[in-house]
Design a protein around this nucleic acid. Structure first.
Lengths: 254, 254
DNA sequence: GCAAAAGTGTTTGATATACACCCATGC
DNA sequence: GCATGGGTGTATATCAAACACTTTTGC
């Protein structure tokens, strides 16, 4: 039996009570922003990757564990965006379904039935690096277009929407979207990323000038090869330049 | 004995374990942004107003309770900005000092000594409406310039600084600062509020034009009376106009 | 009358918007 | 050669920054 299941069954000893972690893992495909969802076996319902906080573990480490176990990635952009906790926030029926799908015994008094406060993070990953390995649970997973969500358990659809709102707000002020792209990317790719997330078209010429005015990217000698038409230049994010601009009080509004 | 003390002594029965609420209450005076701090009687240390989450209460209601009991105000701008929770986040020594100052018995096994996750909010209030009444604890309180903080217990100085950072970031995108001002305010007052919080001077003419271009304020017939020099117009925030502009996708960057 | 603050106007430079033009590539 | 996407340039409108001018008040 894997580590998570063992830990889950001893939840009352291992975890902080009443506290859970939920992660919205965002990844970009050609034309949509997607979230990584897990299928609850034997049902048509989906959940966000989530977990609990071990008693000697920080909440951020708990979120990183969730990401590591689902994506196989360790160096991930992670942002806490909300903590939700109404007094009615308990889901015994959904917990029962999840227990059944994992082959775990469920009782009315199960610790996971209690009221939970959920600390919510979103993560931005480059789907090309994504390796659905190290999975502690061999659940079915799927990248789902955030504008076309399936039925989800608990209040996970709400958490996902709030995470998307937070991402949009953040992207308007900081160049965090590069975390969704490969290390080397082109201006048209960068633009498409903004367009997909902000859900509006941007003017090509103006976009390029604005981005280059930020002075946080370095143009490489290479161009993107193997594409039709004129081959666009590759750029790389320059952390030093970025820190310099930050110090100067620059803004990165789009 | 008051309600909070009674509740605190029965903390293990009444509260969600390991979860606390801390509030940074911001108020504006002539030349500085201030936070409301409470003095721990018998010491020279200060703490943020805070509390715990009752088992049948939402985390937001818990924050509102804290605000109500400290400021006597109910209709308050409240923003959750962070949840902090390292595994080492427990402060038995500080809890002992607080218990002593409240005249409450402290033991090594006291529930409040445990590791705590703190859900942090900031509140924006008009100090003129502030009535330090309804205080469930008759502690000494003080408005403290955020750039000149006294010694604080636990990690409350860090929470306060993070709250200020969050406020600055937010104020750059939304006109939330009006919650620090009276219902009717002048453009110079609005400008000063921005200058104090963002910690930089703004150009008078440009500021006024920009604010009016937002089209979210209504100029009243009246002017601010009883001041020397030319009397400035009074304005009021117009929620309908604001919602309209939001729908149009307007931004309110400063 | 004078100083100071507030409202408004003017000038100049920067940025936004829209679009044109040419280049490079695959077919 | 042609369609298409990419890099760059240009014209115009809008906005930012700096500052000047005028009005209104208290002294």
């Amino acid at each position: 039996m894997n580590k998570f299941l063992k830990s889950f069954q001893m939840g009352e000893e291992n975890y902080l009570p009443h506290v859970s972690i939920d992660c919205v893992i965002f990844g970009l495909t050609d034309n949509s922003l997607n979230a990584l969802l897990l299928k609850v076996t034997g049902t048509e319902s989906w959940v966000l990757p989530g977990g609990y906080v071990e008693k000697d573990e920080s909440i951020e480490d708990a979120a990183l564990h969730v990401l590591k176990s689902r994506t196989g990635l360790t160096d991930i952009y992670l942002k806490q965006f909300m903590t939700t906790g109404n007094s009615e926030r308990s889901f015994p029926d959904d917990v029962r379904r999840i227990c059944e799908s994992l082959g775990i015994e469920w009782t009315e008094g199960h610790w996971a039935n209690k009221r939970f406060i959920s600390i919510c993070y979103y993560a931005l990953i480059d789907v090309n690096k994504f390796k659905p390995t190290g999975g502690e649970l061999e659940q079915e997973y799927q990248w789902v277009d955030i504008h076309n969500l399936p039925q989800m358990l608990m209040d996970h659809d709400n958490i996902l929407r709030k995470g998307y709102e937070a991402l949009k707000e953040n992207l308007g002020n900081h160049p965090i979207g590069i975390n969704l792209l490969p290390d080397k990317f082109t201006m048209p790719e960068l633009q498409k990323m903004y367009e997909i997330i902000l859900d509006k078209t941007l003017e090509r010429s103006h976009f390029q000038k604005k981005m280059l005015r930020f002075d946080i990217f370095r143009r490489l000698e290479e161009r993107r090869e193997g594409v039709p038409h004129k081959r666009p230049f590759l750029y790389r994010f320059d952390e030093n330049k970025y820190q310099n601009e930050l110090k100067k009080g620059a803004r990165f509004d789009v």
